[in-house]
């Protein structure tokens, strides 16, 4: 059944090369922890991706309940946390996952740095990686405001105040983020849009570039 459906599609679209292109490659010994335990450092990129997927999935479920306005935001988070079945798990995964993904990303960056894997010909992938790094920090910053409790409110206030002290651009950045003169209704909807649409979109594009480059160049050789 499955095979005949697959064949039916493959006949028309020739999809086999698409996935074979992704799937057919070898995992060399020097990055395989089954052979050298110390090769676990090469897993951090994959782990970062794993948790990124968790973040995206749990985030999608969060938006089923979350309401991005200043009257209901806190109440909707509170409701999700305490009343919705499995709500605590969904919110917990997204909350702790946000820290975990940053930890994994730090470790991955350090692995790439200390193995010198950013050197020619992989310079571009390092730069894309750093862009991902900044996007991740941006996701952390904008996501922090969304529960709309005091911690969220004041951290954002201080954060934007720091950004506003940047010369020339500062006031524009602050204006863009605040959408007004204080952290308020506009700020929350903006942060929500940035956190849920703009940055994940950019992240996915960058991840695609990251993976295509890895696939093209292969993993860096043993030291």
């Amino acid at each position: 059944m499955f095979k005949s459906v697959y064949n039916w599609i493959d006949e028309r679209l020739d999809i086999t090369p698409l996935w074979r292109d992704v799937a057919d490659h070898e995992v060399p010994e020097h990055v395989n922890p089954a052979h050298h335990f110390s090769a676990f450092v090469y897993c951090f990129g994959g782990l970062t991706f794993f948790i990124t997927v968790i973040q995206i999935l749990s985030g999608m479920f969060l938006t089923m309940y979350y309401v991005p306005d200043i009257i209901n935001a806190y109440a909707s988070v509170d409701y999700l946390q305490h009343k919705v079945a499995f709500g605590q798990i969904v919110r917990g995964m997204h909350h702790f996952g946000a820290s975990l993904v940053i930890v994994m990303m730090f470790l991955h960056t350090l692995r790439v740095f200390f193995t010198g894997s950013y050197k020619a010909p992989r310079e571009m992938n390092w730069v894309v990686g750093m862009l991902i790094f900044f996007i991740m920090l941006g996701l952390g910053f904008t996501g922090y405001l969304l529960p709309w409790d005091n911690k969220a409110y004041y951290a954002t206030k201080v954060g934007v105040e720091i950004a506003a002290s940047v010369p020339v651009l500062g006031p524009y950045i602050a204006d863009f983020l605040y959408g007004g003169d204080i952290v308020g209704a506009q700020t929350l909807t903006r942060f929500f849009a940035i956190h849920v649409f703009f940055l994940p979109g950019a992240l996915i594009a960058m991840l695609a570039a990251h993976f295509i480059m890895i696939r093209k160049q292969g993993i860096s050789g043993p030291l």
């Binding site: 509170d78 605590q88 917990g92 997204h94 909350h95 702790f96 005091n150």
Partner: peptide
Amino acid sequence: FLVWTIAEPAPLGYPAD
């Protein structure tokens, strides 16, 4: 990870004031 999220609820303070 799931066990962790069950054992340790994600924090939430009081509404922003």
